[in-house]
């Protein structure tokens, strides 16, 4: 029995751990992206008005999830946007994703911190014994 998709944060002494959990690997990738947004602001206050397409390729699932998060960091930084809805399609070593969001509104979003990059620390993409997929790593803020 797999559990419902969810995200959470975990402790790292200087930074923040992000974790996505879902019934499929894709769902775990979508959830970890929400956990990334939640390091900055409450995803519930980010309106999914504008779609941004993202493509990544990496030789392993673990490198791919870091690439996915770093692509989102790049899009947030260069478009001055935050994202709250994500879809991910995985095919072999390729990820095709869409992130929906809106431009940063300092007053409404009150962003707490800027993410510098996703790291290979505490990095894991795996299927737990209960069948749920987990994707997690620490992000540098």
């Amino acid at each position: 029995m797999t559990r419902a998709a969810r995200w959470e944060h975990f402790d790292h002494s200087a930074d923040i751990g992000v974790r996505g959990v879902g019934p499929t690997k894709e769902a775990a990738f979508e959830q970890i992206a929400l956990a990334l947004t939640a390091t900055i602001t409450d995803p519930a206050v980010v309106r999914p008005n504008v779609a941004v397409e993202i493509l990544c390729e990496a030789p392993s699932d673990e490198l791919l999830v870091v690439d996915w998060l770093n692509a989102l960091v790049y899009e947030m930084a260069t478009r001055h946007m935050l994202f709250s809805v994500f879809t991910v399609i995985l095919e072999d070593s390729r990820l095709t994703g869409t992130a929906w969001g809106e431009p940063v509104d300092i007053g409404r979003h009150a962003p707490a911190v800027e993410v510098k990059g996703a790291t290979y620390t505490a990095l894991r993409v795996a299927q737990d014994p209960d069948g749920a997929w987990v994707a997690e790593c620490v992000v540098d803020v």
Binding site: N70, T78, G117, Y120
Partner: peptide
């Protein structure tokens, strides 16, 4: 700022691979 972060991110991956 963003430039340093992006360089760190990109070279970390290239060096891992």
């Amino acid at each position: 700022r963003g430039l340093g972060h992006q360089i760190g991110t990109e070279f970390l991956k290239r060096m891992v691979v």
